[in-house]
């Protein structure tokens, strides 16, 4: 019993230490995870970790949190998964909360208000930058270009959930009907080999 708690605390602490490095969602965490989990603690081998990263992207949510949870499960079952998830989320939770509390405390200050007038415009630029980055991996042919183009006006009328489901459905219909008609479907690049943008990596 004592041994188990010790193992869980070790999982928690490992991810707790890595967590504050994960700016923007998590890809910065990969080399640290490899060093801590594979080289130092030898919990998993590098092939297993590569699998975990690939799988973590096909699951909604942040790659950092998903892969931590996944690795936690492989080491210590459901409790290990929880320990890793709490470990990786707690530091950033506290930092964000501290920033949020201080923001709400002083947001009436004229200097801070002035700063945010400019920051809000930069956020628009950052969102456009995020769109360009993901477009580079998402738009691989005419069909995907058309889906992106059609998606924007559609979003003025339907809820994002519906739009996402429609997008996935379109993908399935297109890929399988292309296959039926004998077209070769271009396989997308393996994202594990293309670290520039990971689905779910934030930016």
């Amino acid at each position: 019993m004592k041994e188990r708690w010790k193992a869980l605390i070790e999982i928690f602490w490992t991810f707790f230490k890595i967590s504050p490095v994960t700016f923007g969602g998590g890809f910065a965490m990969v080399p640290l995870i490899v060093r801590e989990i594979v080289e130092k603690r030898k919990w998993l081998d590098s092939e297993e970790v590569a699998d975990v990263f690939a799988l973590s992207q096909s699951i909604p949510g942040s790659v950092a949190i998903n892969s931590a949870t996944f690795i936690g499960y492989r080491i210590g079952g459901v409790k290990g998964a929880l320990a890793a998830m709490i470990g990786v989320s707690l530091p950033t939770f506290l930092i964000v909360l501290a920033l949020g509390v201080s923001y709400l405390f002083i947001h009436d200050h004229p200097k801070l208000e002035a700063a945010f007038v400019s920051i809000r415009i930069s956020i628009v630029a950052i969102i456009i930058y995020a769109a360009i980055k993901i477009a580079k991996t998402a738009i691989v042919d005419k069909t995907t270009f058309f889906i992106t183009l059609a998606g924007v006006p559609v979003l003025f009328f339907v809820h994002p959930t519906t739009a996402i489901l429609l997008g996935a459905l379109t993908g399935v219909v297109v890929v399988f009907s292309k296959k039926k008609m004998g077209y070769k479907h271009k396989k997308s690049k393996d994202p594990a080999k293309n670290p520039d943008y990971f689905m779910g990596a934030g930016i």
């Binding site: 096909s58 628009v124 969102i127 456009i128 995020a130 769109a131 993901i134 477009a135 991996t137 998402a138 738009i139 995907t144 270009f145 889906i147 992106t148 183009l149 059609a150 998606g151 924007v152 559609v154 979003l155 003025f156 994002p160 739009a163 996402i164 429609l166 997008g167 996935a168 459905l169 379109t170 993908g171 399935v172 219909v173 297109v174 890929v175 399988f176 479907h185 396989k187 997308s188 689905m199």
Partner: peptide, 21 residues
């Protein structure tokens, strides 16, 4: 099947971000 879903989902995620902008 998952690959085919992501083929359509990724461009739509791009639309979501453009819409957000």
């Amino acid at each position: 099947l998952v690959e085919a879903m992501f083929y359509g989902l990724k461009p739509l995620v791009t639309s979501l971000i453009i819409f957000a902008a």
